[in-house]
Design a protein around this nucleic acid. Structure first.
Length: 605
RNA sequence: GGCGAGAUAGCUCAGAUGGUUAGAGCGCAUGAUUCAUAAUCAUGAGGUCGAGAGUUCAAUUCUCUCUCUCGCUACCA
């Protein structure tokens, strides 16, 4: 599966002109080495807190057992089927070691006590310098990033375990750590280091040279890892530099819904290319122009169409076409020599450099939307220049003047090819080919002599083509179909659990009951405190249903309750029993209610 | 529930240490124009700057409360 998606993603990036110096993966050997070494160095330096806890281990299943997977005899009441965390008969909370004759619920065998050691990164210890580093030294970070970090720091950092008992992953490189692996958020960011090592023996200059400016481009869900945990690891290691900035984007939605590959609510790049062959730049443009830089944003096909038709075709493609057609008509494609410049000509040429500067400064500040808009302004400037100078009229009276006009228009065109190259690499590559300036790149931008008089340019093709309504409707329909399919699809029903005996089942005492009162538990989002008439008594039950029901609609409802579930204190309220509800895959809750009115306290069996 | 980010023209976004008519692009309307993929250029119409209260001579900009969206987090027996 990893292989399949690695190749799929790699190809998609490449097909869309997104090139990486290296596109690697953390399943490579070099990553195992890098992550191991990194851990080992921290270990040798004594950076970790080691905490051993004794946990039951199932030798037959060869795994550690969580408390709930252990049953045994309760030391208080003699119940033979108490769980590792609690006896359901007497309600005492237990630890697994309290149980007499413990058994694993996985294999049924008797578990043995085994010490399990884990390593913790003491983030609390690093908190002072992290606080200063972000809150004082990096006030320039984006507000969403800065605010999220501040929130974490103000809540106080806690040591975090960096290992797990699992049978896959990078093994913990310490004697006697068999069966232990590095936890994913520890090894994943190290993957960036591994990939750099894979790329070049000179990798340290990227990661350790104080002159290097390290930038992490991420989405907002990873802010904590890239701003706090990974930097803490790097600093603890000692030889690494820290990121200079972590410009996190927000989320992009698709037609008003969260993008989800599993729900097929997505635009698959390979399918896009089938439907819009050769139109990589149109999608790149639409995505960059409405990137979620400051808040979540929505990608819609209508917007995509408008961006393509009204901006790429009408403003950029059209200007380039006008210039090349005029040059072909008047000079057979040969760049004319400019004559005397007017003030307006000089202003226009100066504005080219201004466009470059504006584009650059916005790129430097991670404002890609604005950078793209600034580069596009040059095409607007070009259209205005032609409209103002009207070479198609002037050519009849003053052909010499037209040479200057076309010379300037051509310089604008050449500059467009360079300024827009990072955003629209496919189209600009074609344009540079037509102009014969394939060797010119960013450093040349802003100049007004990119095309020399006498140089020949070709034309005859269009840079962009319009996207018609029916193409867009087809894409929207595709998504509507997906939505319909998702709704009607036999939602994957949860697989059946392990068999239980009749005895086990009959220990559960389920009764019909009626809700008498309901009130929301303060300071919680989900909890409602219910007063329930079980027939046996009137008791309090706390239930996590506040997101589905209001307290007002509940009194009078007939429900089913497990009445002998061990009491549990939730938010300071003792909850005696559990209300039964059915839950579908979307999380919707429905009470399990007797079909007909029946006396409270009637057993369900 | 706590915390963070956001809420500004039909759409996507700027902006203001509080101060005369709140900006841009796209869309829309009108006019001009024809070299150009009916593209372009000009002009214009659109906003009680999420709601309410407060501070102030003055708030959309500061303070408080509230609503909604997104994220992190506690709770869900």
């Amino acid at each position: 599966m990893v292989d399949r998606y690695h190749e799929l993603n790699k190809k998609a990036f490449s097909d869309f002109g997104i090139s990486f110096d290296i596109y690697s993966r953390t399943s490579n050997k070099i990553h195992y080495e890098t992550a191991s070494q990194f851990f080992r160095k921290l270990y040798d330096q004594g950076e970790f807190i080691e905490k051993t806890s004794s946990q039951y281990y199932d030798e037959e299943a060869a795994c550690f057992l969580a408390d709930r997977y252990i049953v045994g005899t309760c030391p208080h009441c003699g119940n033979e089927n108490a769980y590792g965390d609690q006896c359901e008969k007497c309600g005492t909370s237990l630890s697994p070691t309290d149980l007499i004759n413990p058994k694993s619920t996985i294999s049924g065998s008797a578990p043995v006590m085994r010490d399990t050691l884990h390593w913790y990164l003491p983030l609390d210890k690093y908190e002072p310098w992290i606080r200063k580093w972000i809150l004082e030294d990096h006030t320039e970070w984006k507000t969403n990033v800065y605010g999220q970090c501040k929130s974490w720091l103000d809540q106080g950092l806690q040591p975090r375990a960096v290992s797990r008992d699992l049978d896959w992953g990078v093994p913990v490189p310490v004697e006697g750590a068999e069966g232990k692996v590095l936890y994913v958020w520890f090894d994943a960011p190290i993957g960036y280091i591994s990939a750099t090592r894979e790329l070049t023996p000179d990798w340290e200059k990227f990661w350790k040279d104080p002159e290097t400016r390290m930038i992490h481009f991420i989405g907002k869900d990873n802010i904590v890892f890239h701003c706090i945990i990974f930097p803490a690891m790097l600093k603890a290691e000692g030889s690494y530099i820290l990121p200079d900035n972590v410009p996190a984007n927000e989320f992009l939605n698709l037609e008003n819904d969260k993008i989800s590959t599993s729900r097929n609510w997505a635009v698959w790049l390979h399918e896009y290319l089938e439907d819009f062959p050769g139109k990589q730049d149109s999608l790149r443009y639409a995505l960059c122009a409405s990137a979620p830089e400051t808040k979540d944003n929505d990608f819609t096909w209508k917007d995509f169409q408008a961006r393509n038709n009204n901006e790429l075709v009408a403003i950029l493609g059209n200007f380039v076409n006008r210039t090349l057609v005029l040059t072909a008509n008047y000079y057979k494609g040969v760049v004319p020599a400019p004559g005397e410049m007017t003030d307006y000509d000089r202003e226009t040429l100066t504005a080219i450099m201004t466009c470059r500067e504006n584009t650059e400064s916005n790129l430097e500040a991670f404002r890609f939307r604005q950078a793209l808009a600034e580069a596009m302004n040059l095409a607007r400037l070009g259209n205005k220049y032609l409209a103002d100078t009207e070479p198609w009229k002037v050519v009849k009276t003053d052909p010499e003047r037209v040479k200057t006009i076309m010379y300037i228009s051509l310089q604008i065109t050449a500059n467009l090819a360079i300024l827009l190259e990072p955003f629209l690499p496919f189209s600009m590559d074609r344009l540079r080919g037509w102009l014969g300036i394939s060797s010119l790149h960013w450093d040349a931008a802003g100049r007004s002599d990119l095309l020399s008089p006498g140089h020949t340019v070709s034309s005859g093709e269009l840079l962009f083509s319009k996207i018609e309504d029916d193409q867009i409707e087809k894409q929207i329909q595709k998504l509507l179909d997906t939505k319909k399919a998702n709704q009607s699809a036999a939602a994957p029903v949860m697989p059946q659990k392990e068999d239980v005996t009749f005895d086990e089942f009959s220990r559960m005492d389920i009764r019909t009951a009626t809700i008498i009162e309901a009130e929301k538990v303060a300071k919680t989002a989900k909890l409602i405190k219910l007063k329930v008439d079980t027939g046996i008594d009137v008791r309090t039950i706390v239930s996590g249903i506040a997101e589905h029901f209001t307290p007002e609609e509940l009194p009078g409802k007939t429900i089913s309750v497990i009445v002998n579930l061990a009491p549990r204190t939730i938010k300071g309220i003792e909850s005696k029993g559990m209300v039964l509800l059915a839950e579908d895959e979307s999380g919707k809750l429905v009470f399990v209610t007797p079909e007909k009115k029946i006396k409270n306290g009637s057993p369900v069996k």
